[in-house]
């Protein structure tokens, strides 16, 4: 089997935006010329390597700030790594719970159109896909209502429908399956199953370790930008949970 995603030695650094409040024009000119804007540098990802086979599902776990979302943005091609290489074979559609990019004043139909065009779908493609997206999302008469009238679940349903109907080779899901009611969650699951049967690849980021155990072929555990575990979902999840339990007492749910 060939790899759909190959990440080798990827490092991503962020300069924290620490612009002094009384920065002068002189400071700015010097910083710009030296090309070293101030502020501490944080390594969001430290030489991360892994690969995902075509048709496989990778689950990514880790605490907040461990680099999961940065990794997803790099796979999606939104950010470029500072070091290392990333190869994605085929088209990618990201679906992130944070920042669907929908404008509150636009209708669902307009938002879907803009999202599709931003994903690189042609105009004809948009016209063709639109009825399917609206049907799948079950937003019904809300299609022509502004997004601000939508519930969080409805917005996510629309975003999910757009990503699924684009039918990418690689689907990136970041904390998105938590919203939506049970019947839609089942529908999503069926769609994802079908998606995988057709040899497509999925990367799933979630805090819900049980989903990773149940669905994924491989798990990747990120800790402060390092790969803390990689391989069989059950053992990676067990190691992650063991460490979490050690560091903090289990929360009451």
């Amino acid at each position: 089997m060939s790899d759909a995603i190959r990440v080798s030695g990827v490092t991503k650094r962020f300069k924290l935006p620490n612009i002094p409040k009384n920065a002068t024009v002189k400071d700015f000119v010097i910083r710009t010329i030296r090309r070293a804007p101030g502020g501490p540098v944080v390594d969001a990802l430290k030489s991360v390597s892994f690969s995902v086979e075509r048709g496989a599902m990778l689950g990514v776990i880790g605490r907040n700030g461990s680099g999961k979302t940065t990794l997803m943005r790099i796979i999606a091609g939104i950010l470029q790594p500072d070091e290392g290489k990333i190869v994605v074979d085929g088209t990618v559609a990201p679906l992130f719970a944070l920042g669907t990019g929908f404008h509150p004043d636009l209708t669902g139909r307009e938002s879907a159109r803009i999202e599709l065009l931003a994903l690189g779908v042609s105009r004809e493609g948009v016209t063709e896909l639109m009825p399917r997206i609206l049907a799948f999302s079950e937003i019904g008469e809300f299609a022509d209502a502004p997004i601000r009238a939508y519930s969080a679940g409805m917005t996510m349903r629309l975003a999910f429908s757009v990503a699924m109907c684009v039918d990418p080779d690689v689907l990136l899901l970041d904390e998105v399956l938590a919203v939506g009611d049970e019947s839609f969650a089942r529908k999503c699951l069926t769609a994802i199953e079908d998606f995988r049967h057709r040899g497509k690849t999925i990367v799933l980021v979630t805090h819900d370790a049980s989903k990773i155990e149940a669905w994924c072929d491989t798990a990747l555990w990120l800790d402060r930008g390092d790969v803390a575990g990689y391989g069989d979902p059950r053992s990676v999840v067990a190691a992650y949970q063991a460490l979490s339990a050690e560091e903090e007492p289990p929360e009451a749910v």
């Binding site: 943005r73 999606a76 091609g77 939104i78 950010l79 990201p94 992130f96 944070l98 920042g99 669907t100 990019g101 931003a118 994903l119």
Partner: peptide, 10 residues
Amino acid sequence: RLYVGKTLFP
């Protein structure tokens, strides 16, 4: 800023 670096929006 809702799009830049967060979505594929060019």
